[in-house]
């Protein structure tokens, strides 16, 4: 457990000393969303209709944008090699790295989402549901993304490959999350969607660190 804490603190420290690494995806999130009212229509009704979808798609893309860096630097300078040969559990270290990734992208996105929701004229209840879906699903985005990132570590110019690997796995999350928010706008029950998101979170939490560890070991051979 000590190595989990050490790795988490190390990753957070490194990110805070090089803020552009995690600020870029967040900036992308804010800018992309704020362009929609300009491009489509500033009308309240239209925007509140497309709002949940826009916020969710942009959230997904900005997480995707940040995934490339998840293992890249540690691979380049050889720290990843040392992690693989360490007597401690590689999965635990990877879980720490994934936690750090979520704290630096998922969490800020959740915190920014009410602001973005208001910009797209979502009502308070929808914003509340939006935040709930983000809270349930952004950890899954980081966890599933880690599998993709560990598979492409060491491959040059792999951004496109990463999207191809990861996006199909993100689709179910996107469908359940956006349908939860838009159903809530019509006062329909959304517990089904939330349960699905929670299930996806649990499954990815249980499998992702192990699968990523195996993929990383294969990539480093």
């Amino acid at each position: 457990m000590k190595i989990y804490k050490k790795t988490l603190v190390r990753d957070l420290k490194m990110a805070l000393r090089n803020p552009s690494s995690f600020l870029n995806p967040l900036l992308f999130f804010v800018i992309a969303i704020s362009l929609f009212p300009l491009a489509i229509s500033p009308e309240t009704h239209t925007l509140s209709n497309i709002g949940p979808g826009v916020i969710w798609v942009t959230c997904m893309l900005s997480v995707l944008l940040s995934l490339n860096a998840l293992f890249h630097y540690d691979y380049d300078n050889g720290v990843l090699e040392q992690m693989v040969i360490s007597p401690y559990s590689l999965s635990l270290m990877l879980l720490a790295k994934i936690t750090a990734h979520w704290l630096l992208t998922g969490l800020p996105i959740i915190l920014l989402s009410p602001l973005m929701g208001m910009a797209l004229f979502l009502d308070i209840d929808s914003i509340y549901i939006l935040m709930l879906t983000l809270l349930l699903a952004t950890p899954s985005l980081s966890l599933i993304g880690a599998i993709g990132a560990s598979l492409i570590v060491g491959v040059k110019n792999s951004g496109m490959l990463l999207s191809l690997l990861t996006l199909p796995l993100y689709i179910p999350i996107l469908i359940f999350a956006t349908s939860a928010v838009s159903q809530a706008q019509f006062d329909l029950s959304i517990s089904g969607q939330l349960y699905f998101l929670a299930t996806i979170l649990l499954i990815s939490l249980m499998t992702s660190p192990f699968v990523s560890a195996i993929a990383l070991k294969i990539s480093l051979e």
């Binding site: 490194m14 000393r17 720290v79 090699e81």
Partner: peptide, 22 residues
């Protein structure tokens, strides 16, 4: 490869490296 992260100072780097090594 040096196994050092440029964003960390020497002590932190060495600390983490030896921690990994057990």
């Amino acid at each position: 490869l040096p196994a050092l992260s440029p964003e960390l100072h020497c002590k932190e780097n060495l600390d983490y490296l030896t921690q990994l090594n057990g």
